[in-house]
Amino acid sequence: MKEHIVTTYDEDLNSLKSNLTQMGLDVEKQIFEAVNLIKIINITKAKEIIKNDESIDALEKKIRGFATITLSKRQPLADDLRQIIISLKISSILERIGDHASNVAGRILSVKKAPDSYSTDSIHQLGLLVLKNFSTALSAYDQGSKKIAQSVPTEDITINSVYETCFREHLHLMMEDREIIGFCTQMLFVAKELERIGDLSKVISKEVIYNLQGTLK
């Protein structure tokens, strides 16, 4: 990789990228913890996740501020400019994904305990798929890989069908046992949050592809 004549320029761009990578890892951890909550409900953990969302929001603001200063200081062009624009876009998507993870924790907080008859397997399974596809989207950005990015939308199709299955399964559960309607409704909201994270991972992968299309052949 060629370097800029002005070394502080490289330092600025590198630090932008490392802040974004950090934000990605933090959000990944939030999703991981939130998905775990589905299996093992843990009030303390749930509160922790909601609290941690603040630091993710703060990271987004930091990246935005940093990008703004770099734009005005360096007036970047070509690939440098694209790198800054994608940092802004991805950080704002990550911030929204963070919100969805925190919402999952919020729902879990409000149900407190699963009914004995209920199995969390299917939604937990959905969560694992979503987490995995999110990680794939992140590494597509990290490695600048079109190939990895292209696998994300394909996998999202599977996620959507698993979501549909969860949805139908919960309808059945609710029809069979009125006692758990309240609980199942909350879990359907959880599933919806996860499905949204899936969609947003797809958006990240599309940004990565768009960004790569502008690069040299």
Binding site: K2, E3, H4, I5, Y9, L77, D79, L216
Partner: peptide, 9 residues
Amino acid sequence: QDYITGKIG
């Protein structure tokens, strides 16, 4: 690209 972005190496 190297010229407009100020790169060498």
